[in-house]
Amino acid sequence: MTTLLLSTYDRFFKKTGFGFNGYEFVQEPICLEQNEPIIGGSDYTTLNTYLHNISSEITETTIIPIKIRYNQSGNTSFYVGIGYQLACTNCYYMHHLCLPDCKLKFTPLYYQYLDELMNADQLQHCKSVRELASDCAIGYQRFQDDCKFYFRDTFHQFLNKLRMLKALEDIVLSDLSLKEIAYHNHFTGYNNMSFLYRRYQLSLPTIPRIFDQFSL
């Protein structure tokens, strides 16, 4: 199941050019079926803590996405997968993705203001790029240039891809209708969300709905 999940996200990233481009990950599958997730070894301390914290959120009617990143021994590690409950037992299916830090390119701290902007409540309101640049006390053209460098995209194109990524999680791991997912992720409606996906040769009806494949 995690292979299907990873391939779905991999296709999304390749089609949109969003996320890690040109990187190859070392993959290691991890499967656990127990109510208290315990994996031996100090390398898994962070993962064990994370799984313990989310274990209470898993019920017979929910699928919890697992996504955790941490740095260790010169590598950036990602654990991605799902947690769900079957016969009163929590099940965790994950892949461990490892990327050597030497392959990462770090950007100057100056661009941190763009990260802060992406997490700001003001993005929930319709603002023009000029208004956003003004809120950041920076010139319009400099703001556009910064976005192009940091996001490898225009601001609004990056924001749309971010909304598409968040919608993808709902499509794959929830039982919400596509119309509900569109409004939940701040699209103007289903047609608007569908149009954006089609722009990147992604068809909403072809995205697997993993939630539906579990007899919860």
Rank of each mutant, 00 (worst) to 15 (best):
K148I: 06
L176S: 13
A137Q: 15
K105R: 08
V172Y: 00
I181G: 02
T107V: 08
Q34Y: 12
T46D: 03
Q201G: 04
N192W: 04
F149I: 04
R198L: 03
K105C: 02
L204T: 14
K67P: 00
L51F: 08
R142S: 09
T2H: 07
L4A: 05
D146R: 10
H156E: 09
F155V: 03
P29H: 13
P205H: 09
L176T: 01
C91T: 08
E33I: 10
N48W: 02
G139E: 15
F78T: 06
T59V: 08
S7C: 04
G189K: 12
F78P: 02
S174I: 04
L51W: 06
E169D: 15
F149D: 00
Y183E: 05
F151G: 06
C126N: 10
L4C: 07
Y93D: 07
T8Y: 11
N48M: 07
G139A: 08
I138W: 11
Y44R: 07
N53K: 06
P108Q: 05
S203P: 07
L123H: 05
Y93E: 13
D146C: 08
S7N: 10
D146H: 12
L86R: 12
S128I: 13
K161V: 03
T188W: 09
T49V: 06
Y50C: 03
F78A: 00
V172C: 13
V80A: 00
G22Y: 00
S194T: 06
L109Y: 03
K127H: 14
F25G: 02
T16E: 09
T2C: 03
S42W: 04
G81Q: 01
E60A: 14
H125N: 11
I68Q: 10
M1A: 12
T76M: 05
T89K: 14
S215Y: 11
T154V: 05
H52E: 11
M164H: 07
K103I: 00
F25E: 01
L168H: 12
L176R: 15
T45V: 12
K103R: 12
G81V: 00
N53M: 03
Q34E: 13
L196H: 15
C31H: 15
H184N: 07
T16H: 12
N53C: 07
L176F: 14
Y150R: 08
S174L: 09
R11M: 11
E24W: 01
C88R: 12
T206A: 03
Y150V: 04
H95A: 00
F155Y: 09
F151D: 01
I210L: 15
F12Y: 14
Y9V: 03
Q112K: 10
H95P: 00
L6T: 08
D101N: 12
D212F: 10
C147M: 06
T61H: 15
R130H: 14
H125C: 08
R199D: 09
L202I: 15
L117W: 08
S194H: 14
